[in-house]
């Protein structure tokens, strides 16, 4: 086991490089990316399509491995881990919110929220879970199955699931991409609350300047490289910045 460091960095990459394909069809999806995600912070990752946002997220979340460089979660270097340890890490330390198809259709909303705990055969912190349920405002939908929930409700369940196990860090890949703007705003507010009230660390990939403006900090990617950073963003500034990246 890698010893746990007491840094305030929830996750980071150092010189992360990811190359897809072979010989003539090589794509350098990540090119020497070194980033840090601080604990208790809401970070957004932005960049043009194909700039490597999703790839970065997958690699740091232990869903994919880097070609070179390192990725760390809570001080643990992911490159040395076997599938079983990675799975356990994802279950215990990481939460996920995807753009769509976030839930297991055969399980109820509550079961979906508790899923990581159930998979780990853990009871979790019941008071916390109740608080999460209230935070995402799903108390009266707990026994419903995903097919009986609206898109926004489904995403709220996904947030609830991401929060339930008190993960070290939550990754969200375009969580509002499939929602109308009102529902999207609602979801973003929930995420913001999770950071502010529950002290959660969240990393969100998004295209939407408005969405990004809910974050504390934005990291810009272009062509697989870090192209800058913005603290305390607002939609106007973000939009200007995006234009210079050539989206």
């Amino acid at each position: 086991m890698t010893p746990r460091t007491t840094s305030t960095v929830a996750g980071r990459t150092r010189g992360a490089t990811k190359i897809f394909g072979q010989r003539d069809a090589v794509v350098r999806a990540l090119d020497d990316v070194s980033v840090e995600f601080r604990a208790g912070e809401f970070t957004a990752i932005m960049g043009p399509s194909g700039s490597g946002k999703s790839t970065l997220m997958h690699c740091i979340a232990g869903l994919d491995d880097l070609t070179s460089g390192t990725a760390e979660i809570d001080g643990i270097d992911l490159s040395g881990l076997k599938d079983k340890d990675l799975t356990e890490l994802r279950r215990g330390k990481i939460g996920f919110i995807f753009q769509s198809f976030n839930l297991v259709p055969t399980l109820t909303a509550e079961e979906n929220i508790r899923l990581p705990l159930l998979l780990g055969n853990e009871d979790g912190d019941e008071a916390w879970i109740q608080r999460v349920i209230d935070t995402v405002n799903l108390r009266n939908r707990l026994t419903h199955r995903p097919s009986e929930l609206s898109g926004g409700q489904q995403q709220r369940v996904a947030i609830g699931r991401a929060l339930a196990s008190r993960p070290h860090i939550i990754f969200a890949d375009e969580p509002t991409g499939n929602l109308d703007s009102t529902t999207g705003t609602e979801i973003l507010k929930f995420m913001r609350r999770a950071v502010d009230e529950l002290g959660q660390t969240i990393v969100m990939v998004t295209h939407d300047p408005v969405a990004a403006s809910y974050a504390d900090r934005i990291i810009f990617l272009a062509d697989g490289k870090v192209a800058g950073e913005m603290v305390e963003p607002d939609p106007g500034k973000v939009l200007d910045r995006m234009k210079t990246l050539g989206d």
Binding site: D83, T87, E88, R91, F96, F101, L103, P116, L119, R161
Partner: peptide, 16 residues
Amino acid sequence: QREIGLLRAVGMTKSQ
């Protein structure tokens, strides 16, 4: 496949 992928992502082990 998607469901299984999702489950694996949120921490289901191969043996599960």
